[in-house]
Design a protein around this nucleic acid. Structure first.
Lengths: 206, 206
DNA sequence: TTCCGCATTGACCAATGTGGTCAATATGGA
DNA sequence: TCCATATTGACCACATTGGTCAATGCGGAA
């Protein structure tokens, strides 16, 4: 059954979700302040507790909501037929940009949520962690190792590629935090990414 | 003049410094709890305020202390004559390991301290930031770009190398957090690092 | 043994902030 | 006009905060 929150106009919904995720991501469950959340979301204290029965319910809602989003968007629409790791990772970064645009803190929130001791509900957590790890492994399991130069360990080659793309991704996020948010500049970043992918292809592949 | 704190036996001193840096790194200046710090350090509340007049004085002490350590150890003993970036970065990682062994949270603390809005004392902060940025640039300024393959942009080549080493470094730190701390295993990690450096040399250099 | 001076403790305090409630009000459609 | 729902924010009991200080522990000198 749909809760009162689920039928909100999506703009207000996202304002609340983003404010809450940001607060939890910064301070963890225990030290996150509902006062801060309502202030950032631009709603009254009473309204928040009209939507969610208490702090923990809000947290769990966020957790399920964001894992769902990630699983659908991120793992759901990857083309597992694409066995060239360079192209597959490029695809992932594009999806990540789309998500970061809509929920700027969703990845931060999930990262700390999976490590937060205070907010247990262990079953839910371990279940989702298992799914995540599983999908993550699948992402890099079936890639075509024959593309690599013969004198290079393919596992290490993969790592270098992953770290490079993480580096670009983090660099974008850092820039983005200091700037006034307009839109994450996909085009410019993708051009940069492609330049790096060219180098990696030229050097690591046959 | 030496404060009461400076003449403590170094074991106790480090216990207090590490406890305080950890707390500030986790929660930022405003939300860090002196109660937590004394609990983690295994001393009484009164003793902490016997050494430091208040929370801010403790914070500033930590800030100066750790920037000093970094500037001395990290930037002070790098061989700027070594223009092969691969070798120079290897050197830096070794020094980083040594520091992380003694002060497991020193880098975390400094990273958040430089961004923390609440604990200003802006002059001190901007001064040290300037020094850091300056040194950081010097670290990568004089490297020998002629070592790179002609068909590779040297700036991008550098970045790939830096990101790879950051990747290894982060991976070690993540492992280390989950393990019972004995010693950060320099040997094993250095062996792994060298394997990666081999690949990078083979692929990016002439 | 006595005594002194410093190291160390933790109960205590006013102040601030917490998650959560609820009676009062705004709002918009019938 | 009226009602049901959306929304507010003052309010509460309670926890935690940074910081104090009278009381105690303790090692060495006499």
């Amino acid at each position: 059954m749909l809760s009162k929150f689920d039928v909100l106009e999506s703009e207000k919904q996202e304002r609340i979700l983003n404010a809450a995720m940001k607060e939890f991501a910064e301070k963890g469950f225990q030290h996150a302040s509902t006062n801060q959340i309502v202030a950032n979301a631009g709603i009254s204290k009473g309204l928040l507790f009209h939507y969610f029965s208490n702090k923990k319910a809000l947290y769990l809602y966020l957790y399920e909501y964001s894992t769902d989003k990630i699983l659908e968007d991120f793992f759901g629409q990857i083309d597992f037929g694409q066995n060239d790791i360079l192209l597959r990772l490029r695809e992932m970064l594009v999806i990540k940009f789309r998500l970061m645009n809509k929920y700027p803190v969703i990845f931060d929130f999930l990262m700390i949520a999976n490590r937060d001791e205070a907010a247990d509900e262990q079953d839910l957590k371990t279940r989702n962690q298992a799914i995540m790890v599983d999908s993550y492994e699948k992402l890099f399991a079936s890639i075509d190792e024959s593309l690599f130069r013969k004198d290079i360990d393919p596992g290490m080659g993969k790592q270098i590629i992953i770290w490079t793309i993480e580096g670009i991704s983090n660099q974008v996020r850092a820039q983005d935090k200091h700037k006034k948010r307009e839109e994450i500049q996909e085009e410019a970043t993708l051009a940069e990414l492609d330049a790096y992918l060219d180098i990696l292809r030229k050097t690591l592949y046959i």
